[in-house]
């Protein structure tokens, strides 16, 4: 598939088929993540939760207020004809976070969300961590898989999740579902007018 096509077709997926991606595809995604870290060596750790481990993490992750907020925002911006579909999807998504066979949790060294501003080092880590998230999303799409991110801007949930993972020093930068889409998301609109050539 031509690159621009899979970049355009990458959409956030909230409902997944139960089929588990092959180890080969997962290893290919991991290699791509390492390609990002080679030029940008930040403190970073990636957890790949599947099967029983993902199920155990669900009770913590689905308490995350930011997931509900995230979906509520989507509810406000989608066209009227998609709202019923979205409401059903929200209810379903919260049961098992879309039923994705895999959840990836990316951790790096971050600052507190309560601050007004982060220092340069922390911002650098955040920027690279989200470069990694996008690489995972694109590599997944390239391999016929889909993804959907949800965030951890809730101190209690992050603390419980870190305890579950056994992590102390690093903070959660992103969480991504990974699997085969079991829905057709609404078409993506972009506003590409804010573009200048000097």
């Amino acid at each position: 598939m031509e690159v621009l096509k899979f970049i355009k077709n990458r959409r956030t997926i909230r409902k997944y088929k139960p089929d588990t991606p092959s180890d080969e595809v997962i290893q290919s995604i991991l290699r791509s993540v390492e390609e990002v870290l080679k030029p940008f060596p930040i403190p970073f750790k990636l957890y790949i939760l599947m099967g029983k481990a993902r199920e155990e993490s669900l009770s913590i992750m689905r308490l995350n207020y930011s997931i509900v907020k995230d979906i509520a925002i989507l509810g406000r911006i989608v066209p009227e004809e998609f709202k019923e579909h979205l409401n059903n999807l929200m209810r379903e998504f919260l049961k098992d976070l879309g039923g994705a066979p895999i959840t990836l949790i990316g951790l790096t060294k971050l600052d507190s969300w309560d601050k007004d501003k982060w220092d340069e080092e922390t911002l650098y880590n955040w920027k690279v961590a989200w470069m990694i998230a996008e690489v995972i999303m694109l590599e997944a799409k390239k391999n016929g898989l889909d993804t959907g991110s949800f965030t951890f801007h809730n101190i209690t949930v992050e603390k419980e999740m870190k305890e579950f993972l056994g992590e102390q020093d690093l903070n959660i930068a992103f969480a991504l579902n990974l699997g085969y889409a079991d829905e057709t998301p609404v078409p993506k609109e972009i506003d590409d007018r804010k573009f200048t050539i000097v």
Binding site: K38, Y47, L165
Partner: peptide, 15 residues
């Protein structure tokens, strides 16, 4: 060659 400052991926797979 592409830039390589030696960053490595630390990952854990839990099933």
């Amino acid at each position: 060659n592409p830039l390589d400052l030696g960053g490595k991926l630390d990952y854990v797979i839990r099933r």
